[in-house]
Design a protein around this nucleic acid. Structure first.
Length: 434
RNA sequence: GCGGCUAUAGUUCAGUGGCAGAACGCCGCUCUGUGGCAGCGGAUGUCGUGGGUUCGAAACCCACUAGCCGCCCCA
């Protein structure tokens, strides 16, 4: 019989790698908490309409990458419904915001999430069909200050702090403003017009993009097209006074807080709901991501709530590609030394197994990480296993059990001492000098 | 979704048509109250899956599956 395997684009995360995942998530929780964010958990699947309206019917995500199925009615009282595994989490958070009338609190909502997302793309390193995002949203009624530039700057400063604390080296923040909901179409129209006479000279991709999605032309990496692209209209010239002012305030706050950034007038993002500030954090080549070098992205979505039938609720958010962050940390880590246990408890003779288990229980209760051997093992085998797993080994033989004085071997120091059982936990906490 | 490269032991890989290999790791013994070293021995396996060519296929051909690289797009 054919063996079953994890389906394409999905994967198992195993120890010791999961330890890194936990560290990343713990760091995110700790940092976000300092900025007064609370956790939200939304469903893994939602009504398909949520993504069609929120993310945008015309985006690649919605038009060809979603896992959608018809959840048929199973009773007369039940209606058939099109459901979709979430391809991103912002739409779900905004849906929950509307559904639970969080705007009526009058307070700014600061929500973060950690969870899997699903897109049916061709898998590649750093790109999976089930992938994890760590994200956050700041959203609220206008009077809560949700559309103020200080919120944008706070989010960006928090991300810089998070990346530094989690240990990402060499990150780069690219920043742009795509303007208000009316600025953007005006710019796209101007772009189309400017492209019409020159597109014939451009690469095949650009000729197609000039028709389907002119903003994407700005992303082109074809060397021969760069001069043409430089000459195209700039989004900055199409911002209304408020958007321009908003962007200036964001930049000023970042300057004051010492968060480095690069203005990238060509940074356009694929989700339809973005307005004003958009950003992306990337890592340098050689960080383990290849061309998938965008670690996280985000932006402001001042009209999203209304698009979903909710009240006016401006907001800004981001999503970190956790899989990519992990790959980056692994590639950048000089050498990941596997973490060792505090001690290995080695019974000598199977008769000592119960006593060894009891000692392990006491030590674990004292907060130590402990593995227990088996008295059937020859002592040599216990030593080998212990040295591989732990810093120290506690020998539990007949003599030790009788006297209550245990023999402890410290592998790094190569020393061996006798320790009364009552002082054992304390002795294992201290690392002897080499 | 498109183009390309790849798939052999737990891992990294060698093997260009004639007995399935190396290193590391693993297991055993020397050695049942003192490890790391050493010596000796052992197992590594559907050569990704299915078909084809051939006296003979891990190798050549086709299809499929999966991973990777690039594109598209995005985190």
């Amino acid at each position: 019989m054919a063996t079953l395997k994890a389906v394409r684009g999905t994967r198992d995360l195993l120890p010791p790698e999961t330890e890194l995942w936990n560290r990343v998530e713990a760091t995110a929780r700790a940092v976000f908490a300092r900025y007064a964010f609370g956790e939200i958990r939304t469903p893994i699947f939602e009504d398909t309409q949520l993504f069609a309206r929120g993310v945008g019917e015309e985006t690649d995500i919605v038009s060809k990458e979603m896992y959608t199925w018809e959840d048929r009615a199973r009773a007369a009282s039940e209606k058939a419904q099109s459901l979709t595994l979430r391809p991103e989490n912002t739409a779900g958070v905004v849906r929950a915001y509307i559904e639970h009338k969080l705007d009526e609190s009058g307070m700014l909502q600061k929500l973060f999430y950690i969870g899997p997302q699903f897109r049916r793309e061709r898998p590649q390193r750093g790109r999976y069909r089930q992938f994890w995002q760590i994200g956050a949203e700041v959203i609220g009624p206008a009077w809560s200050g949700s559309e103020r530039a200080i919120r944008d700057a706070e989010v960006l400063e928090m991300l810089a702090t998070f990346l530094n604390e989690v240990g990402v080296k060499g990150w780069r923040l690219a920043l742009n403003s795509v303007g208000s909901a009316t600025d953007r179409p005006r710019y796209v129209a101007a772009l189309r017009e400017a492209l019409a006479p020159v597109k014939a000279t451009m690469c095949e991709n650009c000729q197609r993009r000039a028709e389907t999605n002119p903003l994407r032309v700005l992303d082109c990496k074809e060397p021969g097209d760069q001069a043409t692209i430089e000459a195209l209209p700039k989004i900055a010239d199409f911002l209304d006074a408020e958007s321009r002012d908003h962007f200036e305030q964001v930049k000023a706050a970042l300057d004051t807080c010492g968060v480095p950034y690069v203005i990238d007038p060509r940074l356009v993002r694929g989700l339809d709901y973005y307005t004003r500030t958009t950003f992306e954090f990337t890592v340098p080549d050689g960080s383990g991501l290849g061309t998938q070098n965008a670690l996280l992205g985000g932006g402001r979505y001042d009209g999203l709530s209304e698009m979903l039938g909710g009240p006016k609720a401006p907001g800004i958010g981001f999503a970190i590609g956790e899989d990519r962050l992990i790959l980056t940390l692994q590639a950048q880590a000089a050498e990941a030394t596997p973490k060792k246990l505090d001690a290995f408890v080695a019974p000598i003779g199977a008769a000592q197994n119960p006593a060894a288990l009891q000692i392990a229980k006491e030590l674990r209760a004292a907060g130590l990480t402990i593995e227990v051997g088996d008295g059937d093992f020859r002592l040599r085998k216990s030593f080998e296993a212990a040295d591989k797993l732990a810093h120290r080994m506690v020998m539990v033989g007949e003599d030790e059990v009788a006297s209550g004085i245990l023999t402890v071997k410290y592998f790094e120091a190569g020393e061996q001492t006798k320790v009364p059982r009552s002082e054992l936990a304390e002795a294992l906490r201290t690392v002897p000098a080499k």
